[in-house]
Design a protein around this nucleic acid. Structure first.
Lengths: 248, 248
DNA sequence: AAGTGGTCTAGACCACCAT
DNA sequence: TGGTGGTCTAGACCACTTA
């Protein structure tokens, strides 16, 4: 049924790309929720009227993007933001000896604001639209290492309150996922070196003027839609940021 | 011929992994040199006594790791260190507005030294083995932005002299490739913020005490074999380090 | 034992590039 | 026109998980 999917579609892509789009659409519409299993490959093949090989090709790519997770003998699952995935996929700070630790988050501030032109551009909003601004202090092994400032579109997180944010039982990205159905699947970061100002220095218990690593992150959901801006200041005296490229 | 390749092999992996290993071995032994074409997939299938599908699977992975490059209608080629690949794959500094520029390199020092325990461990050498230490100043659009210190195993680059290094006609990684047959395919980096010392400050034309981004890179060839250590100090006043993860 | 993903095959047809 | 990689199919068998 090579062309069954394509009738009425104006733009032509390989079948497996169409299938990938359809599966992603199912994820967006929460037909399959994070943590749950997709139908088996045989069933997906029947559903989309393509061969299993084509399904596998589509799922292969979603697995490579860490949107889906295969488990032999069990099934294929929608990736969740469990702490392990966070640690290996979205948290790139390690102790200088290479040991990874889970951060503990303390919320310092929760404010409502309006998007300036820069934030609007980066979040696909109009200048002046409402945003939420959250500041956190992250500790590793009890030591304050990282200051975060998160900016979210108010419209995307309509009922988010400081209380909800503080009393979440899991990571921030797991909160986006479970409560708002937004699954963060990708992040782009820009890094620079800077100097600690008085306020940051005090919170991180370092002298003013000490060097800090500044990380500007844009976190995205499916189709590279930006969801969260995050500016982090990291004390890299005993910790480092790791980055690995060229590995398949 | 499912088991043809496996006879006499003590460890069992999927066929396409074996094929991938054999192709990689051909690359290591320079049977196919960077820039040249591999045999067609049909021929590779005949040579290794597997189906084309299995060849494609193996080549797919090598393409994903950017070790090979497919060009429809032309063939499959061994990746080279042309400036474009360098810029998009191994050089992660961009101007703050996102523009990528090719750096110009000025060699400041070329020395011979012995590996201390840290260098020996990271380069898979024994402490005390001979190493080459090269310092460079990199300019972007004429401005000194980056200080590099490169450490190489003398044994791997036996006849490398300052003259050869300075008078290379292409990038450093292209030199490793064309003269020593070493193809850098992967890099792992650790970043931290630091403060400019007097010497660095002078070379980068910034005040002492200004913040600098320190990048510690291990560059690897096939099979994750470490080849080069590189410590970079970057003036991130007008430039940034970019990192993107979660994209397939 | 039944169901899932994982591997491998063989062959068809298409899109692209060189000549 | 002939050769290359790109897509798609259909089916076989294996490895693993669960019940």
């Amino acid at each position: 049924m090579n062309s069954a999917l394509r009738t009425g579609v104006e733009t032509f892509a390989p079948l497996y790309i169409e299938v990938k789009r359809l599966i992603t659409q199912g994820l967006i519409e929460a037909e399959w929720e994070p943590g749950s299993a997709l139908p088996s490959e045989t069933r997906l093949a029947q559903r989309y009227h393509v061969s299993i090989g084509t399904i596998r090709r589509a799922v292969d790519e979603l697995v490579a993007e860490q949107i889906l997770v295969r488990q032999q003998g069990r099934g294929t699952f929608v990736a969740t933001h469990d702490p392990k995935r966070l640690l290996f996929h979205f948290f790139h700070i390690v102790r200088s000896d290479g040991v990874k630790q889970l951060p503990e988050t303390e919320t310092l501030a929760f404010e409502r604001d309006r998007a300036d032109t820069s934030i609007a551009r980066r979040l696909n909003l109009l200048p002046g639209e409402r945003v939420i601004r959250i500041r956190n202090l992250l500790r590793l092994a009890g030591e304050p290492i990282l200051l975060d400032e998160i900016v979210l579109s108010q419209a995307r997180f309509p009922d988010l309150t400081e209380k909800i944010f503080r009393e979440r039982d899991a990571t921030v990205y797991a909160l986006y996922q479970t409560r708002y159905g937004i699954n963060i699947v990708r992040a782009a970061e820009r890094l620079r070196a800077t100097i600690a100002e008085r306020a940051s220095a005090r919170l991180l218990k370092i002298p003013p003027g000490a060097p800090l690593l500044e990380i500007n992150r844009t976190a995205m959901t499916y189709h590279n839609t930006p969801v969260e801006l995050r500016k982090s200041l990291v004390n890299t005296a005993e910790h480092e940021y790791w980055s690995d490229f060229g590995k398949g």
